[in-house]
Write a protein that binds this DNA or RNA. Structure first.
Length: 185
DNA sequence: GCAGAGATCAGCT
DNA sequence: GCTGATCTCTGCC
């Protein structure tokens, strides 16, 4: 399956968020492969988006949002959780990223159960911090290049039907923008 | 089935 | 010192 090129990520952040639905997130650990179809995303932009981490300018945590597109932005939150984003924006913006909120597990489901230490299939990767745990994504993958990495990347996926647009989850400011996107499989 | 507490870090006031 | 792009476990409001 073809890895998404850099040009895929150098378009408007909201457009990239929609287009990532149905694509495949792949993670290699040793000789094992873990993968899943992306089923929910959220766009976070820059100065026009008060909910974005980049809104207030560069910090130690968010600096890759201002760097090259197609890079993994992973942040630590609530003292225990990691969330995974792909840096994406067009030339009108200096920062932007797409949060991957949910996956449909494909390969390596056994590994995911092990990583998550649970037994219910439904709770495997249906939340941003759940999928990072299932795929063993941590700060070590911060700044990884998704277009050239051998251990963490995104490829072409499946054809999708209808996309649902909703307010983003867990934010106060910017809740009027419908930048949460979802598909049913 | 749903509300509330707890975990405990980076960034802001 | 408080808040959050969260999840899990507990107890019944």
């Amino acid at each position: 399956m073809k890895v998404l090129p850099r040009s895929f990520y150098s378009r408007d952040t909201v457009k990239v968020a929609r287009d990532l639905l149905g694509k495949k997130l792949v993670r290699k650990i040793g000789n094992r492969t873990i993968s899943g179809i992306i089923t929910e995303t959220e766009a976070y932009r820059y100065k026009d988006d008060p909910a974005s981490h980049a809104f207030g300018g560069v910090t130690e945590r968010n600096k890759v949002m201002f760097g090259q597109v197609g890079i993994a932005y992973i942040y630590f939150t609530y003292g225990m959780h990691y969330c995974f984003n792909a840096v994406a924006r067009n030339s009108h913006y200096d920062a932007g990223a797409v949060l991957i909120r949910a996956l449909k597990p494909e390969l390596g489901i056994k590994e995911m159960f092990k990583n998550r230490k649970i037994n219910s299939f439904n709770n495997l990767t249906n939340g941003p911090a759940k999928l990072t745990q299932a795929m063993r994504i941590t700060k070590k993958q911060y700044g990884e290049d998704l277009t050239s990495s051998a251990t963490l990347y995104i490829t072409e996926g499946i054809k999708i039907r209808k996309i649902g647009a909703n307010p983003r989850i867990g934010i106060k400011n910017g809740a009027d923008m419908l930048w949460n996107f979802k598909i049913e499989i």
